[in-house]
Design a protein around this nucleic acid. Structure first.
Lengths: 214, 214
DNA sequence: TTCGCTATCCCCCGAAAGGGGGATTTTTTG
DNA sequence: CAAAAAATCCCCCTTTCGGGGGATAGCGAA
């Protein structure tokens, strides 16, 4: 009886600690696995050539480039490899893009280890894993504040609502228009939001909102 | 000669993978360390009672509660323990809160392992570590713009440079200052950038920059 | 019922952004 | 070399931000 071939997995993530943690998890939890690691985007393609992995776990936020572009390149050059994208942030836009370029899955890094293992096994088995809980994660009506950070930073519902609109690129005037209130009201909300977040510019607000998946 | 006492460190983080990765790092890199882990906020205080750690590495985003509140409680109950807060997010507000409740440090999780180790050693040595680099985080001039979108959109090197600075939250004036040119020059660049990207507001620029990993 | 929080609205002011014209000087490149 | 591209600078103007004062009504908890 021939020795069964080990499953080869390549981790691409410049967050070294996460990368290491993930490797130990896979080494422990998956039978017959060979786990390679790459800590910068530039090393990805050479590493794939060298190890010809079955599965690639790809971080979405890489320095110098981003997971989507790299993922597309990988799939173009190595159509047989399966690619599961991992990220800290819950961004519907990113999920869509990942789907669009043909990646095989998208999971949040703060999923439980069980969820991660299930997802990894599923993608290895040929399925795609786009966790549905991603989209209705922060838009479900039973959780009006979306996420904990809202409560932690004492943001009110109205304020979160306005943060979302500012993030969409709307001006104070446009927001006032859309919510049918005076623009002075929105100005007040803005001031309060900035105070609570400890910021002073739209640019900072956008960054905050995007990083928190708003 | 008596056996020297090992350094006891407690990790509190419900992001299991990060927690594990951090543990392996510490086990490898710090001499005579005993590393305990807790994966949920509720287990924190019992674990401290049990292990009486010298240092606690505390995640800022815990389910059910948050790092600030838990940190305050820990310091109240165990005044001798040192607490270093770790988080994914660079939020001035959080840093201030951490300082205010008396935590001994605040670092970003995506710091390099070296930075983390330095910070951990410093806090163990009795210093406080509130990384000043938090603000000027990604202002390194060394990485060239090897990005496709730049070429795709016919962005010049200077323009990409300025996009990065705008994304960092700098104003036209500040950018002009930093690059040693007139602010009118930066205004012109802004106009050209907006034209090339087909946008008309900073908010859109930030979104573009973040999505493209700038 | 009083206190605190939320949401609403108002005024003033200076600074910055956005948009429209220009122009000149380097640098690159065919 | 000559043309094209990139980078620099200047004037005009209106709108929007950001920050500083306020105020009022509603509502729920202490």
């Amino acid at each position: 009886m021939p020795t069964p071939e080990p499953t080869r997995i390549l981790l691409i993530d410049d967050h070294r600690l996460f990368n290491d943690g993930l490797k130990s998890l896979l080494d422990e939890q998956i039978d017959l696995v060979v786990c390679e690691q790459v800590f910068e985007a530039s090393g990805a393609l050479p590493a794939i050539h060298r190890t010809s992995p079955h599965l690639i776990l790809l971080d979405a936020n890489l320095q110098g480039t981003n997971g989507i572009d790299l993922g597309r390149k990988i799939l173009h050059d190595f159509p047989a490899v399966r690619v599961l994208m991992l990220t800290m942030y819950n961004q519907p836009k990113l999920v869509d893009e990942a789907r669009r370029v043909g990646l095989h899955g998208y999971m949040l890094k703060d999923a439980t280890t069980d969820e991660l293992l299930r997802g990894i096994r599923a993608v290895l088995a040929g399925n795609t894993v786009f966790d549905v809980s991603l989209t209705n994660h922060s838009t479900k009506p039973d959780d009006p504040f979306g996420d904990e950070f809202a409560r932690r930073l004492n943001l009110t519902f109205r304020e979160v609502e306005i943060i979302r609109l500012i993030r969409e690129g709307l001006s104070t005037e446009q927001i006032a228009d859309q919510l049918h209130v005076a623009h002075e009201t929105i100005k007040t909300h803005r001031k309060n939001i900035y105070f609570k977040l400890g910021i002073s510019k739209v640019t900072e607000l956008i960054q905050f909102a995007i990083r928190n998946g708003l």
